[in-house]
Design a protein around this nucleic acid. Sequence first.
DNA 1: TAGAACATGTAAGACGTTACATGATTCA
DNA 2: TGAATCATGTAACGTCTTACATGTTCTA
Lengths: 180, 180
Amino acid sequence: MDLRDTILGLLSWRPASGYDLKRIISNSEVFYWSGNNNQIYKSLIELQNEGLVTHQVHIQESLPAKKVYSITEKGLAVLHQSLLRAPEIPELRKGFLIQLAWAEILPDGEILALLEKYEQEIAGRLRMYQAQTARPGRSPDRSPREKYLWKRISENLSATTRTELEWVRQTQQDVRERKF
Amino acid sequence: MDLRDTILGLLSWRPASGYDLKRIISNSEVFYWSGNNNQIYKSLIELQNEGLVTHQVHIQESLPAKKVYSITEKGLAVLHQSLLRAPEIPELRKGFLIQLAWAEILPDGEILALLEKYEQEIAGRLRMYQAQTARPGRSPDRSPREKYLWKRISENLSATTRTELEWVRQTQQDVRERKF
DNA sequence: TAGAACATGTAAGACGTTACATGATTCA
DNA sequence: TGAATCATGTAACGTCTTACATGTTCTA
């Protein structure tokens, strides 16, 4: 599942401009790219050259014209193929664990301070996920099944973050009580 | 915590050759880079030019000579600074969630097949972590505290993976029972 | 009046991966 | 005899990010 597949997926939900895609990808944690123009506009041109998407120019009064992209039959077929590919294992990039790995050179107090800062960050992130899930209209909802799947996707991120929060709290407690 | 910091950290544990570092990084999930030569050998040269590491050539009979790198005082100071930086939030790249996001075009049976394949992958990964934790001598152990921290790091990955496993099993069950 | 939102695009560079190049030794 | 391990390095390429460039409209 690379950015191209993701764009095809988004367009299989509904037509969108490059700017729309940028906004969606930037604000989403699931679509984990930064949502920079360079990749998105280049990918759209590429996908169009391959006949997987088309676009129509919409002229707006008092706003710049925009190119609204739609997925083609061929694009849908390609998307279908990538959905059937073997699932990838998650890539977990936790810089904080590397920080902890060399924390031997720090006194207990500084390790605790780090753990507390990390807890704050994670707690904030969890609140963000929960607020985002509550907001309606942000996800495809073409059937009860699709609604369910998107709820589960959102719950996946929350569950992962909750586990992280429990982990850091337990670690804090152990360090405070010097349980080692 | 980038690759350079990670190399400094590893060298703060013990001197190592580029090849040693490559092996450690390749086999570790915490140090999440691929461990390719290009980055590692280039970083070592860079770090040496900045005076953060030095090396001694060890000539071995019946094996190629190697450059054994050590961290300098200056390198230790730089490492200390990066340990005190504000913790980064984990980057979770779960391609599978994106696959599920567009699974509306698949029948229940194919979604279930995907979920089962994913479960297998995750279960395998969890077994791998647990086996790796059991293996001794793979981590710094300069004090009970450091030993504890490394245990917690390893437990973090296991806990995250266990949560993922529970999530996929619950999702499977819901889809089987069509709970939506 | 300054900044955010809308809208499309390009340039430069950092970051990361695979594959290539070389060559001895060890093990199945 | 072929593959894996040890050991250092380079080339080519793909991915991803930040910043630049341009211009209007709306809001604080």
